[in-house]
Write a protein that binds this DNA or RNA. Structure first.
Length: 227
DNA sequence: AAGACGATCGTT
DNA sequence: ACGATCGTCTTT
């Protein structure tokens, strides 16, 4: 018996560029509960639900595109639905979804994921438990697994996202794409079982008054409750 | 050419 | 509270 070909067995609707062509604060809120999918060159998928976001846009002093287009930030001035990945503090990457119409520089920083499909292996001294204990190193405890992608730098590490993935279209079968909320998730929102929290953004020194950070309440994968 | 700084994270 | 670490942007 031969192995079947890899198919997408999860049928969430794919997020398209039109849906993302709205102001970044709107998208930042609506991306909560959506799924970020990373597909590696070998076809392996890593998946996580978006649980924390921040919006950045033109006229916002904290936005990388505040002053003028540069080689790094140019993609933010273009159409929605592209990736914007940059290196921060010389050692971490951050992943953004470009939003709004062409000419309006804006993006949503994905700050944390609750992983639903874990990678086969983890970088460096980290290690997954079970699955025949992989190759023993130091199996992570349950609460550590839950926080593996609790932060913008951490989620890029676990999803193997670096600057080679900037300026790419977020389409199915590309290295990265987005899927909409499941009906189950949306029903939980409608019935009040899941709540969203809005706060000011964290880790910045300018634009600290703008309340453009959102996260899902009571979610262990959220990076921090406040700053 | 040189310097300042940063949408972070893990340790002290 | 602090340091690691380096690409990017600003200033000389």
């Amino acid at each position: 018996m031969t192995k079947p070909p890899v198919i997408n067995t999860i049928f969430n609707e794919i997020v398209d560029a039109t849906w993302l062509s709205r102001p970044s604060p709107t998208i930042a809120l609506e991306l909560l509960g959506c799924t970020l999918v990373r597909q590696l060159p070998n076809g392996e998928q890593i998946r996580g639900m978006i649980v924390e976001t921040e919006a950045y846009m033109a006229g916002d002093p904290a936005c990388h595109a505040y002053s003028k287009p540069t080689p790094r930030n140019a993609v933010m001035f273009g159409p929605a639905g592209m990736s914007y990945v940059y290196l921060i503090y010389g050692m971490y990457h951050c992943f953004n979804v470009v939003t709004d119409v062409e000419g309006v520089a804006s993006a949503v920083l994905i700050r944390a994921l609750e992983l639903s499909v874990f990678p086969d292996s983890l970088p460096q001294n980290l290690s997954l438990g079970s699955k025949s204990d992989r190759h023993i190193k130091k199996p992570l405890k349950k609460d550590q697994l839950a926080r593996l992608a609790a932060g913008p730098g951490k989620l890029c590490r676990v999803l193997q996202i670096d600057r080679t993935l900037t300026d790419l279209p977020l389409h199915f079968n590309q290295p990265l794409w987005l899927e909409h909320r499941t009906p189950t998730f949306q029903q939980a929102v409608n019935s009040g079982k899941i709540e969203f929290v809005q706060t000011t953004r964290i880790g910045i020194t300018k634009g600290t008054d703008l309340p453009w950070r959102w996260y899902i309440a009571d979610c262990p994968a959220v990076s921090r409750l406040s700053f």
